[in-house]
Each structure stands twice: as structure tokens, then as C-alpha cells.
Design a protein around this nucleic acid. Sequence first.
DNA 1: TCTGGGGTCCTAGGACCC
DNA 2: TCTGGGGTCCTAGGACCC
Length: 384
Amino acid sequence: MPDQKRIAHIDMDAFFASCELSVYPELRGLPMVVGGRRSDSPRFRPDGTRDFVRLREYVGRGVLTTATYEARALGVHSAMPTMKAAKIAPDAILLPVSFDLYRKYSRLFKEAVRSVSPVVQDIGIDEVYADVSFLEEESEAIARRLKSAVVEATGGLTCSVGIAPNKLLAKLSSDMQKPDGFTILTMEDLPTKVWPLAASKVNGIGPKASAKLSSLGITTIGDVAIREKVWLEENFGRNYGAWLHQVSHGLDDRPVVTYRKPVVMSRETTFERNLRAVHDREELGATFTRLCDQVATDLERKGYIARKIGIKIRFDDFRTVTRDITLPTPLSEAKAIRHAAGQCLKRVDLSRPIRLLGVKVSGLVRPGKDDQGDGPTQFDLTFL
DNA sequence: TCTGGGGTCCTAGGACCC
DNA sequence: TCTGGGGTCCTAGGACCC
């Protein structure tokens, strides 16, 4: 067994769009985006062909979930407001989000990866890490085997693979030959292949940190690497600064974790139009109850009860507030969640129009089993 | 051109306890 | 009586990711 760690990062190519293309193969090669509502589903014409909705017909507040490479070439991309995308690419085909379909392909994709290497960490619906250290083959052979297993299991969906000594570098490398490619990275490649990359390519360096870095004249990962650790800590705080120093030198010791207990479950919705607390009281109340019901269902389905109940409100000006409460005993019933969430709602000034309403539960424990953790509270020691 | 929904993790102040 | 420091919990907000 080689003592050098090898981690693979496997990332599906334009995943949601690719799933849709296997349902609607006639759209192959056309600019297409996913992000519509159910009403944007294609209809059958009398002659049996399908009539697809165009992006220009969209009305609403959604954002694109994904776009085919042909649509990306026109300048639209995932997370773009759909109304904005409609101005840029009005003739692109629009499809509604079909999560059940994506979950089906996601299962097939992950099973395929596990068939090559069983130590797999879920990152999202279309992305995993796999620890492939124990495999005997060369990294290139592993990458090819992962890719063909995925294509075979999903009936033709492609992915991009990166294999490197750790998660950080694996993730960066899977992005280097997209779509349908693979990249093997070693520590020796750091100066030539990693340092030239934009700092924002690193997982954990988002828009805020990037802006601050560039205001200090830092744009690439290499620019970060030439800074002293103390300088980074002075400018970005002790934790984040030390972390920046680490990642810029390609260092990352996070293991591949195959199971994690969930931390929070939430449901939220953005209204078609902003609602007012007084005038739209009924609609708000009905939505609030529905969200609580959904969270309760989620809790029950996954087998948890929750000690913390919270709400989230986004106003018309996009300002977001949260309120939450810790209960003396964990619970999962919809009515009790609704009551606790209602108490939270009372603590918010609702004079502005409301854009979004959400309900969240956390402090999750499994009912019956050690729900107070390992504290002495579950034992009666008074007899001592 | 106004910005989804589901998450994780971190920070920071105040309460409270030792 | 005053002071100090550490640890943990609670709450609110925010950065970031897919």
C-alpha cells in the first residue's frame, strides 16, 4: 500500500443540464438552461413533437440552476437571475428543475464511484471526494476507471476528475480539464499549475475575501504564497490568515469523511410578490404553517428531533434577519414547531414588505438515544 | 438585471459558572 | 469586597459552498 495519500475529486459536468438532455436528447447542442417552474415544462404538440418554453417567456424571481455549455457561451451561467438571463439569451430553451430526476442520476453516479473506491464523501448532489490511496494502480488509471464507471452507470453522463495528495488540490485539479477530462497533480506541480490560478478558485475564498485580497494587490494563489504568514494573519485575522497561508502552499489535511450527522434542516420560500404583515396576513400565515409542516416531515423522515427552532425573514430591501430559540426539550411535531417559530416571529419588526420566509431547526438529536449528549442529566444521582 | 433553496462553519457579545 | 481568567451556552449575523 503506498504511503502517499491520494484523493480524487469527481465533479459531474453541467449536471442538471446533462440529466435533462438524457430525457430530451433533441436538445443536445442547443443553448438550454434549467431554472423554470413546473409551468415551464415542455408540452406535446398534436404531431408528437415537444414544444419547449423559451427563456424570454419566463416571469418570476428565480435564478438559473445550471446552463449547458452552449448557453454558457452566450454569457449566462448558474445563479444568474433568470430574468437577467432572458435578456441575454432570450431564445435559449428553459426547463423546470426536476429534482427527482437529478437525485436518481446522483445515486447512480455515487454508486459508480463507490464501486471503484468505497471511501467516498458526499459534497453535493453532483460532487464527491474519494480516498484512493489504497488502490494499487497509477493515478491516471484510477481516473480513467472512475470516468468510465460513471459514464456506464449513468448511461452517458460525463464527469471531470482530479487526483492529488489532498482535497484542496484534488478539487482544484478536477476543474482544470472541464468538461469530461482529468488532471493528476502532485506537490511538484504547485508552482507551475496552482500558483498561477486566481485566488478565488480556492474553496473558501469567496467574493468578500477575493475583493479584499485584490485591494492588497493579490490576485493569484502564488501572490498569497509569497506573503508572510504573520502578514496574512494581521490582515485577515488569525484563523483565516493562517488558513490562507496553508492553502497557498497546497497544504490541507482534512480527511475524507464518509458520514456526518446533519446539523440543521430548513425550509424557505421567496414569494412571487412581496407580502405585508398586516395586509397579507392570511397568505403569510398559511405559508408559515406549510414551512413548519415541511420541516416536521423532514425531521421525521430522517429520524431526528430538534432543540432549536428558528425563523428567517428577508425584506424587500434584501435585508435578512433571523431569530431562534432553544427549547428545554427537543421536539419534532409540526404544531410545536409552529408555536415556537411563532414566538420567534413576534420578536421581529415587520413594518417592511417581506420577500422571503423560512423556518429552521437545529440542535438535532435522535429521539430516545442520549439526547442530552453525554452529560449527567440523564442519570439520577441523588441516591448517592 | 434585482438577487433560489439547501446547507456548513465562524465570529462576537453577553450570561452564567467555576 | 474586588478582580481576573477560562469555559460553555445562547443568540444574531455573515461568508461561503453546491
